[in-house]
Nucleic acid binder design. Structure first.
Lengths: 232, 232
DNA sequence: ATTGTTTTTGACCAAATGGTCAATCGGACG
DNA sequence: CGTCCGATTGACCATTTGGTCAAAAACAAT
């Protein structure tokens, strides 16, 4: 199963999945690509799971269809029976990822307690780093290389969401309920600090040495950090 | 010229540069690979500069010798006259980079004012993100993919340096001159927050929209953040 | 000019890689 | 049992790519 199964999700968005067999779906309603057979869903999931492992570790170009096929336990032509191309697999992963990735920010409740809400947001993002490091690295790889495949989503969906939540945070500042910090950079700092523990995992473990638990320690550290930063 | 020319550097370390021509250096002292002709130094620099641009944008496997050759204005066989392989170019870049990258931490002065020292460290790292984003991304690419080529340096050189400076910071905490925070995670937070502005540049600009200057804003934000975090 | 050395490159090569295709397999159903 | 259709794959292909090599330029020293 895909790693993000059972998350505060919402599917939606892109999903560039062309149905195998080539034939156009007889379904008239647009965007209704679901009716795949049991075995099809199964294999698509297997492939995406394998592709996640390979893409996140080697990047798009570093990954080969053979690697993904081997990891999935399928033949290469069989991969291409379920996905039209290597890029389609990649895009499919990215579009699923976006939702999972933004869910924690979506959940920021304007009516909750400001500091509690922001700390909860940070903690949820840290949980993603702990539980879904491969997804984090897949995303990081894409952004570092200039986000060729998701730049548009960043400038539209992501920007809209961040702007919306920034307004909320600005309101909290104005009301004196949290310190007066730039909301955008506050959000960036949450991203940076939490994702760092997934993306730079090797480095962190190399520096800390074995028998220390980076993610657990991070929780305490970051909690203190944001508490101090946000105190009015 | 390489982008990091004129930095608080120190060369040293690896430098896996085999001298073209195949002949062994007559120099008896080990590690003395320098005596290259003017044109050789020139072309090696041109190649490394081009390779930095290409590797940092496409990752190791995403980069091709043809891209690098084109960027450098040289023929592909000519590249391989100056470097034995694609990997040698990459390693050469990484080993130079390590020094530049760690210089700011090395400069942390145990006898200075704790908060001023740590803020200065943060600011120097942020300057690296502003002035050498390609180097930052090259490094990030390598770490994300498991640091296959520099894991050893991380576990030895880097760990040693961080441990050393951590002891200093712990001393400051114990003396009540800064708040009691875990030194390792404090350093990680500086890395995360500053490098994020280089590595995730596209995302940040997409979210902030044009006509905002991320790096300048970041300086103020981060200064406030660390001031609040470290206040005893 | 002549000779010797360093640089440069066009032509090639073998391996890797994304993708195609015709043929085969397998199971559901009549 | 036989038919049909989705699933699977071995063989194959064109292109890309890291790397080689022998020959040609450049250049230096006499």
């Amino acid at each position: 199963m895909p790693a993000w199964a059972g998350l505060p999700d919402g599917w939606a968005v892109g999903e560039t999945g062309l149905v195998p067999g080539g034939a156009t779906r007889s379904d008239t309603r647009m965007g209704q690509h679901k009716p795949r057979s049991r075995i099809q869903r199964q294999n698509r999931e297997t492939i995406l799971e394998a592709a996640l492992a390979v893409f996140s570790q080697h990047g798009f170009r570093g990954a080969t269809l053979d690697m993904i096929a081997a990891q999935a336990g399928l033949s290469k032509p069989n991969l291409l029976y379920y996905f039209p191309s290597k890029e389609a697999i990649h895009v499919s992963l990215l579009s699923q990822l976006m939702d999972t990735w933004l869910a924690p920010l979506r959940a920021l409740n304007p009516d909750g307690d400001p500091i509690a809400e922001l700390r909860a947001y940070m903690r949820r993002k840290l949980e993603l780093s702990r539980d879904y490091p491969r997804e984090s690295r897949l995303f990081a790889n894409e952004i570092i290389q200039g986000a060729p495949r998701i730049e548009h989503a960043l400038a539209t969906d992501l920007k809209a969401l961040v702007d919306e939540k920034s307004a909320v945070i600005r309101g909290w500042s104005a009301a004196g309920r949290i310190a007066d910090v730039d909301p955008h950079h506050l959000i960036f700092s949450i991203w940076a600090l939490t994702q760092h523990y997934a993306d730079f995992d090797v480095q962190i473990r190399a520096v800390l040495g074995a028998n220390r638990d980076p993610l657990t320690e991070a929780e305490g550290f970051l909690d203190r950090l944001f508490t101090r930063l946000l105190a009015p």
